[in-house]
Design a protein around this nucleic acid. Sequence first.
DNA 1: GTAGTTGCAAAGTCTTTGCACGACA
DNA 2: TGTCGTGCAAAGACTTTGCAACTAC
Lengths: 134, 134
Amino acid sequence: MERTIRYSKKREAILEAICSTDIHPSADWIYQRLKPAHPDLSLGTVYRNLNFFREQGTVQCVAVVNGQERFDANVRPHNHFICDCCGAVIDLHQIPVDAGLDRQVSETYGLQVHHHDLVFHGTCAECREKSQIS
Amino acid sequence: MERTIRYSKKREAILEAICSTDIHPSADWIYQRLKPAHPDLSLGTVYRNLNFFREQGTVQCVAVVNGQERFDANVRPHNHFICDCCGAVIDLHQIPVDAGLDRQVSETYGLQVHHHDLVFHGTCAECREKSQIS
DNA sequence: GTAGTTGCAAAGTCTTTGCACGACA
DNA sequence: TGTCGTGCAAAGACTTTGCAACTAC
């Protein structure tokens, strides 16, 4: 029994908000961003739609930073960098994704591997400058 | 002004609990585990000591699974597998860690890279069996 | 009209924190 | 004896959910 999916202006706006940026926003960022144009938007709706998009495979959660989930509308494999200072999440499109790793893990351990995440941690350029000034 | 660190039975027990297992426990797991032998243990103490060990570099948080932080007393670089079905966190000691990646990201993007995490997602053997039975 | 979607607020979960008391050095 | 560590409970932060009202089809 399939569920029929209906159009909703809020849903469209939420997806548009995620797609419009590369900062890998949190639920609250999306909410704050849309609130001016959609004064009656509720944070619960943002969460519900994020989970909807996640189930659909439209967006994915790429990290949890300071207790907040961070979302990405680019669901193709790519790596990320997280600044441990300011919490920025940055795409690393130039770093190749090793697609053979999943198979390697699968064969070595007998695990059913779906995908992998490669996340680098460190300090971003902006935070580095700030810390050098002080 | 250095802070003097004192001995505490609870702290020792908490670290021992983390070291005694390879399941990468959560704070609550440690609490439940120690409660019988330490009936007056408080969950707040577990959290405080986990953060203490993290600052000392004795343990590290290797993942957030279902909203819970998972800890590891093995702080040397190694990769992990997370079962998206049951939430198990498994060490992958046989999968080599590419130490050169950090430098590569650093040079390509001008970022200060401290370390990276490679996490595989999928279904563990146990969950796979269960799903095949039903 | 039926069923999906939302606002609102309450509840749920995990983690942190203030304060008084207890314990190590 | 001066801090450090802890229990307890309250508070904080993020996310989920129940319900009535609204809306797409």
